[in-house]
Design a protein around this nucleic acid. Sequence first.
DNA 1: TGCACGATGAAC
DNA 2: TTCATCGTGCAC
Length: 183
Amino acid sequence: MKKLTRSFYERDALEVAPALLGKYLVREHGGVRQVGRVVEVEAYLGPHDLAAHSSRGRTPRTEVMFGPPGHAYVYMVYGLHYCLNAVTAPAGNAQGVLIRAVEPIQNLSGRTQGPGLVCRAFGIDRSANGIDLCGAGLYLAARAEDAPLGIVRRPRIGVDYAGHWARRLLRFYVRGNPFISRP
DNA sequence: TGCACGATGAAC
DNA sequence: TTCATCGTGCAC
């Protein structure tokens, strides 16, 4: 497997999101290696995207989003769950791609069909916020034989408050994959 | 300093 | 469809 490099992330989230499908999310800690195949993602396009956290400006929480690409933006939702994003585009653009679901490949227990469940299965919490995805510990990687995938585009989930941004087709998933959070 | 509300998941 | 649960962001 080949770890994705900074340049992979240094592009518009609209481009990075579908490119992440079929890639592998890897976490190595305590001598254990967990692997999941990314099957569902959402793109958040920056401060002008009213569904993106960065649309409220640079705050302590969104600081990482405004930073350099290839870093993990992890936040808590509903006081209960964590969500993992990869920061994309050059620093200051405040874009990101939310990892919504993975297909379990190695050392993952429990369901992984939803952003909160992905973090739970990988043991990802607030302490992972800001981690460099181009380093060790937590990263995304590609396999050599990368067969082309059927990709489905849908509106993002849980962002109905975002006006017309809620209707844009910024959610991407692998066609026919049984591990997506919902059709 | 207080308060309304989530980029969710599970139960009913 | 409802509820759990708490950090954030914004209104006073």
